[in-house]
Amino acid sequence: MKRLFGVFVNGLIIENPLFIIMIGLCSSMAVTTTVANGIGMGVALTFVLVMSELIISLFRNLIPESIRMPIFLIVIAAFTTIMDLEMQAYFPVLSKSMGVFIPLVVVNCIVMGRVEAFSSKQPVADSVVDGLGMGIGYTWVLIALAVVRELLGNGTLLGFQIMPASFSPMIFFILPPGGFLVFSLWMAASNNLRRKLLAGKKPEPTQDSCCTLPENGSAEKA
């Protein structure tokens, strides 16, 4: 149990896909003009990630090495399409506002990377938890970005007017350059925090992530 929790926290914070590993960046800036979009995208990606990791992990011994890549892609693409269709059916507004970024989940490095690096070598439970951790880790960053952008750029949160009427929204923040800026500053903040933590108590966080290592090594040998 503790091990699974470690795997979960790993994705959530320690190896956060956006801030630490820095993969899957594209969608994080494109869809965070509103919090609703951010949540939608996060949920969508988490779904694809968890399902793909589950399936790959289940079949990991039935996948020939030489066509590993196409098979991963097929699995991921299938779940992406399912998610796309469901979104179109039940959340048409969300689906429209995210546009091409929904199908692009298929090439999101987070999914591909985790499937390759983790679930193709790990048992099912770990894979699912890893998917959840990574997915939620991705989602909270999206929300963090979107909160700043929607609040400053539109004066609202989740569509509700938050800022006083006299506030003139700084539209810059919902335009592309604003996306880059907010991401940059969030990342700087996270770097700074992480460095302080590391400086405070030696390299403990990385040590933590290493607690999943031993089995990983043995799995590889097998």
């Binding site: 020939p64 699995v75 299938a78 399912i82 179109q88």
Partner: peptide, 28 residues
């Protein structure tokens, strides 16, 4: 053999999709 394995995965994936599509296309 490689081709066949890939074909099996593709078929399973695509047919699965077709079922999902069938159910969602009406809603859409």
């Amino acid at each position: 053999k490689l081709g066949l394995i890939l074909a099996v995965y593709t078929i399973v994936g695509c047919v699965g999709l077709a079922f999902v599509y069938n159910s969602t296309s009406k809603t859409i």
